[in-house]
Structures are given as structure tokens and as C-alpha cells.
Amino acid sequence: MVRPDMSRHKEIWVYAEQTAGHLARVGLELLGKASELSDKLGAGLACVLVGYRGEKLASELLSYGVEKVYFVDDPKLEHYQNQAYAGVVADLVEEHRPEIFLFGATEMGEDLAPCIAAKVGTGLTAHCVDLRIEDCDGALILHQTVPGWGGGKRVDIICPRKRPQMATVKPGVFTVPRHKRNAGGKILRVTPQLHEKHFRARTVEVQKGQACERPVEEAEVVVAAGWGVNSLGSLDLVRELSDLLRGAVAGTRPLLDKGLITQDRMIGQSGKVVGPNLFISLGASGAMHFSTGFERAKFVLAVDQNPQAPIFQVADVGIIGDLREVLPCLIEEFRKLKKAM
């Protein structure tokens, strides 16, 4: 069990996920937030990187102002191996006792972080939308805000006694900080203690295609389709609007269940969270677990035929009408605007 240890210099850790020589963007996003937290806490900022031949990635992390990179390097760790990764990272935690440890809520992060928390006997909070340090009776505690019950509620979670305070954050919640020159951090190479037991679950293959489209979290315009697009017969017009605005097509869970969009395009509490400049919702009624996924959007335009639909409570401008009539007109208007610009 890990207890707070005030005698040493405190550190905030970020898990820097990598696959096949590439850092996951969410790890960088977390560095920005972690750096802010480390200022408040008067703590150092460090990254944990696990893999094989990752020197280049470790240096890249230093360029974001990280003071230390704990770099666990071993040929057996070239591919993600949940128990081995969890084992070596938990060993590092036991040794260095960070105050806070943040993970990206990617598929691998969500697979890994709970195992580490269970190993070191501390709490973990999933899918935080905000993190901040608050003074609780003289102790500086991490407040971890999560959306609850579909997103209509916010819950602040704390981990008062156990350390580290662990949290996961979805990609797209925080923004990647700027590079800092001459950051002057150091890379600490760690030789892991690996056992046979670590490979009882063994990753034998990782197939990671290049995304054919840009990740929906990175698009400036997101056009999301809801169940109402069924009246259109296809997603053609939705795509046309999205292409016109150089956006990304996304959708609600019912569209995923129907096979009209892929998992990585589903917006909502259990899917992607996005914060584009403009979010366009077409034919979605606006259930809270969907609208939670775009609350950071700067502007929201919604079209739905039901005037009572909750989507109009989360839209800057809402059009009550039949998609079959409204959507072609919207495309026409945006096209005119493009020409005029």
C-alpha cells in the first residue's frame, strides 16, 4: 500500500502511451494540465514511458517541459502487454510514490490503469472532464470532476488517503501544450523486473491501421447524425455538409448500433468527447449521454423536427423542421457562404 510521503519531493506523473513508435496525443494533452497542477502543488512533472527503443519518444516528451521521463525499456515490452506493463509501472509507483498519476482513457489506458490502481491499492477516477487542486483542511487534494448519469450531473471525486491519486481523461478534453525549448529534463532508464507470470495474457498481434480519416476529436467542425437521419435514407447529405465544411462525420449510439458509423465516430459519454469550433447535430433528440460528448464545442447548431427535443436546450441555434427539407437548404446556404468568402 502506498501512503502519502511528505518527506520527499512530490511528483505528478503522466503515463505517455505509445504504439509502434508513436506517442498517443492524449498523453501530451495531459502534460498541459499536469503542468498546471504541478505549479499549484509545488510538485515536479514526470512521464512514464514503457516500450522498446523509445529514446526518441522520451526526448520528444522532454521537449514539452517534462522534468523526468521514467523510460522502461525492454524488447519484451515492444507490444503493449497489460500485466507486464502494469507490473513494471506499479513497481515504479511503489518506488517513487507520486502524488498524482494521470492516464489517457484510450482502450489501452482503460485496460491498464485499473490494474495498476488495484496493484498499488489506490483509487482511480475514470473519464475526468476537469482536474484541479483544492485545499481540504490544509491538505492539497486533487478534485476530479466526472459527468454522472448521462451528463446532467457533475460529481467531484477525491481520493483523500491513498496515493497516488489516479485519474483517466478521454482524448480531446485538454489541449496539447506548446513545445518548450531547452527544457533541460532528464531521461531515467529503468530496467524492468519481468517474470513469466507477467505474460499469462500475451499480446500476440497488434493491428493498427492508419486512420483513414482524421480523428473526430481533432476536427474543427463535427457533423453528427442522430436517429432522425433515417428519414433521409442515407448519410449522403450528412457527408456532403461535412465535406463542404471540411468537417468530420459522427453520430449517436443508435447509429453505431445500426452500423451506420464506426465506434471511433460515436459521440457521447461512452464514446468520443469533442470540442470543435462548430458542432452540427442532425436529427438527434439530444439525450444527455449524447450531449455530454460535445459540451466543449464553441457553437452548436441543431436540427430536429420535435420542438420538445432536449437538443434545443444545448444548441446555440436550433432549427425545428424536417431534415429532408432543411438539410438541402443548409447545404445551399453554407455553399453560398463559402463562395462569398
Partner: peptide, 24 residues
Amino acid sequence: PTRVASLFDFKQKRRLETLRGDPQ
């Protein structure tokens, strides 16, 4: 290990302008 420190309602702040009528 974790506790709920507080619980509150959440509403997005939007302009809430709605339009209806002739599609064009």
C-alpha cells in the same frame, strides 16, 4: 479509496435561439 466530494447539476451555456418556418 475514492469519495464523492460534491454533486451538482450541470447545464451547458448556450444561446438557445430556435428557428422554425420556411426551410430556406
